[in-house]
């Protein structure tokens, strides 16, 4: 029993952190046109094998587990990384066809997330993605998007484009079961934890230097106590994320409950931390040039993926837990 990342896990996390901070720094989002994963970043990520982290070895992947998957996407979250990175990694796992899989893993094909919306579908990610990935708790399917009728929509969150899809083509590939959904939950929960941590780091640093009434704002209790509450929620979400990812790695009987709980807690922590981060920055916090709104908008986007609050909480209610 050990619930803190260690050894190889830490090495992977550190390597990911370093790479993502240079390839996808959050400040890219202050320049227009940087939504989604561009071709160059996709090739770089592919080259380093990040899309194949949790893909089994016999399918050309690294054969790592939900734990490494979580560690990687937490770093993506810290830089407000686009969700098409998650789509790309999950899509490769859905493929039975080696050609499409290899194309996704090597970055010559690309994926975006699809979510049902009325009788249409919402597309999150690049409208020029070759594939759309639709994941539900029951199954995952991959759709070729070349012929799809895509209507671009304005996006609140600059990290990802939004579009609506009319007449989604029949799936090119599909897989039954909840495996991809769970990895999507873990990946998006990890991104939320990364966002919460980034928000907490930003405000703690600012609170040490910004002065009012002759004192650092970090010495005012309204600020200190809000930061402490952010820290508690973030710590709770992180601990449950590690638990859930490890439960999934070990295929424990109660893993689904822990994954649902992890996603729920991560949503709550990210929404609260990114909100308080803006508030405690004062006026500068609402400016376009600051990172604070980027974190908040991305947290809002991620909280809409892989299970609504209502869905997660109602499932949790009756879930049995193991020791």
């Amino acid at each position: 029993m050990y619930l803190v990342p260690e050894g190889d896990e830490l090495e992977i996390a550190n390597a990911a952190a370093e790479f993502i901070a240079s390839a996808l720094p959050i400040n890219r989002l202050h320049t227009a046109g940087n939504a989604d994963m561009n071709g160059a970043v996709r090739s770089q990520l592919a080259e380093m094998g990040w899309f194949a982290l949790a893909l089994p070895e016999d399918k050309g992947g690294s054969g790592l587990t939900a734990v490494e998957h979580a560690l990687f996407f937490r770093e993506i979250g810290r830089q407000c990384g686009p969700v098409d990175i998650l789509a790309q990694a999950l899509a490769a796992m859905v493929c039975k066809s080696a050609d499409v899989r290899d194309a996704l893993v090597s970055g010559t094909a690309s994926a975006a997330v699809l979510v049902p919306e009325g009788n249409r579908h919402r597309l999150i990610g690049s409208a020029s993605a070759t594939h759309g990935l639709l994941v539900t708790p029951q199954s995952a399917s991959l759709h070729e998007m070349a012929q799809a009728n895509i209507e671009a929509r304005p996006a609140l969150d600059p990290a990802n484009s939004l579009a609506l899809v009319e007449n989604l083509p029949a799936p090119a590939e599909s897989q039954d079961g909840a495996h991809i959904w769970r990895l999507g939950q873990i990946g998006s929960a990890a991104m939320q934890v990364g966002l919460a941590e980034a928000a907490l780091d930003l405000i703690v640093e600012y609170a040490k230097v910004r002065e009012t009434f002759g004192k650092a704002i970090g010495s005012w209790q309204a600020v200190r106590h809000t930061c402490a509450d952010m820290a508690v929620m973030t710590e709770a979400a992180r601990a449950e994320l590690w638990y859930a990812a490890t439960a999934m790695k070990e295929d424990r009987g109660d893993m689904e409950a822990h994954v649902d709980a992890a996603k729920h807690l991560a949503n709550e922590a990210a929404l609260k931390a990114t909100d308080s981060n803006i508030q405690l920055h004062g006026g500068i916090g609402v400016t376009d040039e600051h990172d604070a709104h980027l974190l908040m908008k991305h947290a809002a986007l991620l909280s809409r993926l892989f299970g609504s609050r209502q869905y997660l909480l109602s499932r949790l209610l009756h879930a049995k837990l193991e020791d």
Binding site: L3, E235, A236, A237, A239, E240, W242, Y243, A257, H258, D260, A261, H264, L265, L312, L313, L316, L317, L321
Partner: peptide
């Protein structure tokens, strides 16, 4: 329940 699961994980 989720909060309590997190407390146990912590």
């Amino acid at each position: 329940k989720a909060d309590t699961m997190a407390i146990r994980a912590m």
